[in-house]
Computed example of a mutant assay.
Amino acid sequence: MFVHFLRENKAAAGILFFIRIYLGYQWVTSGWTKITNGFDANGFLQGAVANASGEHPAVQGWWATFLEVTAIPNVDFFNVLIPWGEFFVGLGLLLGTFTTLAALMGVIMNFAFLFSGTTSTNPMMVILGMLLLIAGYNAAKIGFDRWVVPYLKKNIKTHQSKPIFHH
């Protein structure tokens, strides 16, 4: 019943609009601050790895291994990926364009931050992002997806009906 409300109800679309704008603003300002002020994830990543030890580690061993083997050696890539990812997630949510993709990527980033031992606003943002994901298209009815999604559906169907190989 609640899922139906989120996915179909016009009042829910209005509530979801405000949730989407709030989350979008949080993401876009966080990303833009990192882009304009410079960003270096190395200290954060090293700190997360250090928090993987002790009786009650804040970071699980498997995640610390991922950070040591993948993220830290490629920190320059993550120094670009994180701020621009945050910025584009925020932009997508603010504009209501590719909303479910933006919400999904935001939730994934929130979980990455949580896995790294940072709580802050991440749990709340995960819950709000999940509401947007569950709501699907209704979360973007007041946004550009109102026009983008039908356009893409029409053009994808048109291209799917064309044969791939011509004789």
Rank of each mutant, 00 (worst) to 15 (best):
A50T: 00
G38A: 05
G47Y: 00
I82F: 05
L6F: 10
A71N: 09
E86T: 00
N51I: 02
G61P: 00
L6P: 07
N42H: 09
M124T: 14
H56F: 15
N9G: 03
V3A: 09
A58H: 03
R146Q: 14
F77V: 13
N110L: 07
F115V: 01
W147R: 00
N122V: 01
L23K: 11
S30C: 10
S120W: 15
I35N: 04
L16R: 00
L95S: 05
N42Q: 05
I21G: 11
F18E: 04
G24Q: 06
L132N: 04
V148A: 07
A13I: 04
T99R: 08
A71V: 11
F66K: 01
K10A: 13
G117N: 12
G47W: 02
F66G: 04
K34N: 13
L23P: 09
I21T: 13
T118R: 06
S161Y: 02
F78I: 01
G117C: 07
N37G: 15
T99F: 07
A139V: 12
N79F: 04
A135M: 12
G106R: 10
G143S: 09
W62D: 09
A71M: 15
F98N: 08
T70K: 02
M130N: 00
G54F: 01
I108L: 15
S116V: 12
A135P: 08
D145K: 03
G47R: 01
N110G: 07
F78A: 00
T158L: 14
I15A: 15
F115S: 08
G92M: 11
F66N: 01
N122E: 13
I134W: 06
A11Y: 10
E68R: 15
H166M: 12
G143W: 11
M109R: 02
G92H: 09
T100M: 15
V28D: 10
